[in-house]
Design a binder for these strands. Structure first.
Lengths: 158, 158
DNA sequence: CACAAGATGTTTGAAGATCAAATAAAATAA
DNA sequence: TTATTTTATTTGATCTTCAAACATCTTGTG
């Protein structure tokens, strides 16, 4: 393992743990402390859903099953973050939307993300930022191509 | 939010989800499919523990309580990945080590990480890679300073 | 139209992850 | 020796997730 590779690996693992940890901390205080990180991500996904706010769409966005989402939405409705509404056009469909409290929580969380990215930017020179954005863009696209439904990208060859 | 900021935010979120997803997929097939991502991280931590392999040490490495680790280790012993052994020097202490199967799973997972980093490197020019490593290095250090209680356990070893 | 097939959600039962508190056993300090 | 501290386990609670069984609704086919 050469040096660039090993430090990249090292840093990715670190960043992963640290960011989750920081997010946890940021959420565990304040007005919306009764929403866990996972629940906040559901709120986020609903907020970003727009018209694609059926249970199936939101579940797909989150990468969880509809059954799991049903459970999550039920508690978030109980906590006052989300609303359910049966569609009139297709009465099988359930539309999920943010309540005012849900909107506030979403905005709060978005602010956290913005501030975190701000901190990152302050740490980097403009040139570094540019390089990182370009590079991560390539990497993101690369990973995206490999996620949807394929195990093709990594095969165990025992 | 300017463009660099918003795409950085977007990409970090995507990368996060994608990498977890890919890791999940990589693990969910093959010989070690009965170990979840979390369980694999326990195996990893035990593998990297060396002499610091008491329940307390490993739990600290992972940033979980000893009670949680006890539960995790019990199922991993049942699945044949780990061994428990009472210390003779201090009979309160339980030492945890990898079984041959655990070693194999650890090696398998390490190879996954290596290959993922390899793919990243293939996507980037040498200049980009250099910029990213330097930038992430700064950001990692920055985040580390903000995560007081730790989990500073990850060590790269060839 | 009527019925089969398909799509959409909910419920339920199981497993895993995690914690805090209660407990047990062993080492160490007083 | 006795009290305190350290180390682990057990237990009961909550959360997250899935798959499978179920119910309901829509659509396609004869």
């Amino acid at each position: 393992m050469n040096s660039a590779e090993s430090s990249l690996n090292y840093m990715l693992v670190r960043l992963f743990n640290d960011i989750l940890d920081i997010e946890e901390r940021a959420l565990s205080a304040g007005e919306f402390a009764d929403a866990s990180v996972r629940e906040m991500h559901v709120i986020e996904a609903v907020g970003a859903a727009g018209d694609e706010n059926s249970m199936s769409s939101v579940a797909a966005r989150l990468g969880i099953t509809v059954g799991s989402l049903t459970v999550a939405v039920s508690t978030l409705v109980r906590k006052g973050y989300l609303q359910r509404e049966r569609s009139d056009l297709d009465r099988r469909v359930v539309r999920v939307t943010l309540t005012p409290r849900g909107e506030a929580a979403d905005a709060h969380h978005a602010r956290f993300h913005r501030e975190m990215v701000d901190e990152v930017r302050r740490e980097l020179s403009p040139e570094q930022l540019k390089a990182v954005v370009e590079a991560l863009d390539r990497v993101t696209i690369y990973f995206e191509q490999r996620v949807p439904n394929g195990k093709h990208w990594y095969q165990t060859e025992e």
